[in-house]
Design a protein around this nucleic acid. Structure first.
Lengths: 229, 229
DNA sequence: CGAGCGATTGAAAAGACTCAACCACCGTGG
DNA sequence: CCACGGTGGTTGAGTCTTTTCAATCGCTCG
């Protein structure tokens, strides 16, 4: 069970921070960060920010998972990314000055800290490591998305599902993967029914194991070979 | 016809530079840039860099067009972006330290300058405007790609083609759009035959006009309404 | 003039989606 | 404690879009 006291998360001892983009801060900076950040407990399915709204700061996930998604014409979500503990969410639009092009929402109960825009930009001005980390992170995501686009355009749903499960294995550590069928379909980019049928195939092929919502990968190698390059 | 003398492009008078990310340089910096950059004439279909190679610097397009693409499992190209005069190409991987995840190749004869990695990174260190411009650009592209992914996942080929033509209108200014059917298909993310059939539909609906390879948009509004949000 | 590549067309097959119905689990209130 | 209602999960059938494969056409370059 999660600690619901929002006062309890301190940056200096935060395991999520040390392995994140904010891991390179000196102790003064951490103290300063601690003074300026706020921390909140979120229930499942709560919104961090909406598409079209203007960014007021960045979110640091201390515990929990967050989906970042965009809605298509008919309102169907396309999940672009699933963020876990240690990741930061919502900083891209802060730099461009544009409103958010995506929305973010918790997938489970979570502890998430918030750093206001000005504070964060100040840190970036003074801390070269942080700045370079951010630039590197943006570049990496850009590269990931080029692959995502190519997969979406060229792979079959079966291949994409295999690929998605491999990614999800990294997000849900330790397993099992615990995601609604609809969210999983919206991540893979397919209809819920199609996703369910393919999961069934994988189950029959002994690749995965399923208990209600919870999914465990039994044969990663096979998934890798299905997913392709 | 293009000027094939690679010595002829000077940064200080370069119209492509002034409207680009490098528009904010002071005159000292421009002089310095001029000393360090090289400029080359490229024929159609020449490679700027390959997927998997390591970045040695950035490319500034003075004249011409460049496709940025990634190959899928079966070698089919997915075009991620088409860059025109004034755009810079190939800087993302430079920051992440990884090899290129995409390749770039000229679509027509082009004049393209090259700035070595160290020189560019030095400029970024000293010039806040440039640095912020880069961060902003990275963020913007990230946002574009979120939309690209969503379109790819949720729109029909017809809708995506309409969307692509609108984008291409912006790249090919003045029209006509002049792109091989295969490249266009690889941009839309479909089979060449499907693309051809849909172009034929658009032609019959009076939306576009086609002369061999050259394509002009007659009814932009209709394209917009087909493309959707 | 001929070779070759890109463009085009047709026909058939496959993959994925939609729609509709049904099931199963879970929390609620009687 | 159990019936009820609701949400999310599952299945089946039919349809439609898109792909694939094969063949033809037509321009351009040597």
């Amino acid at each position: 069970m999660l600690d619901k006291s929002h006062k309890h998360v301190t940056c200096s001892t935060c395991m999520s921070r040390s392995s994140s983009l904010l891991g390179g801060l000196c102790s003064d900076e951490v103290t300063n960060l601690e003074d300026h950040k706020t921390c909140n407990y979120y229930k499942k399915s709560q919104s961090l920010f909406l598409e079209g709204s203007f960014p007021r700061g960045v979110f640091c996930i201390n515990q929990g998972k967050v989906k970042v998604f965009k809605r298509g014409d008919e309102g169907k979500e396309q999940i672009i990314h699933i963020a876990k503990e240690g990741e930061m969410v919502g900083f891209r639009a802060m730099f461009s000055g544009d409103p958010y092009n995506v929305a973010a929402e918790t997938l489970e109960e979570s502890n998430i800290c918030f750093i206001a825009k000005d504070d964060f930009l100040n840190m970036m001005d003074t801390n070269v490591t942080l700045r370079n980390g951010i630039i590197k992170e943006l570049s990496k995501e850009l590269s990931d998305r080029a692959s995502f686009i190519t997969n979406m355009a060229q792979k079959s749903v079966r291949e994409r599902l295999a690929f998605a499960l491999i990614l999800l294995k990294g997000v849900y550590e330790p397993e099992p993967i615990n995601l609604s069928r609809e969210d999983m379909a919206n991540f893979v980019g397919t209809a819920t029914e199609t996703l369910i049928r393919l999961l069934k195939d994988f189950k029959e092929e002994g690749i995965i194991e399923v208990h209600t919502r919870k999914l465990t990968i039994l044969n990663l190698d096979k998934l890798v070979s299905i997913a392709g390059k």
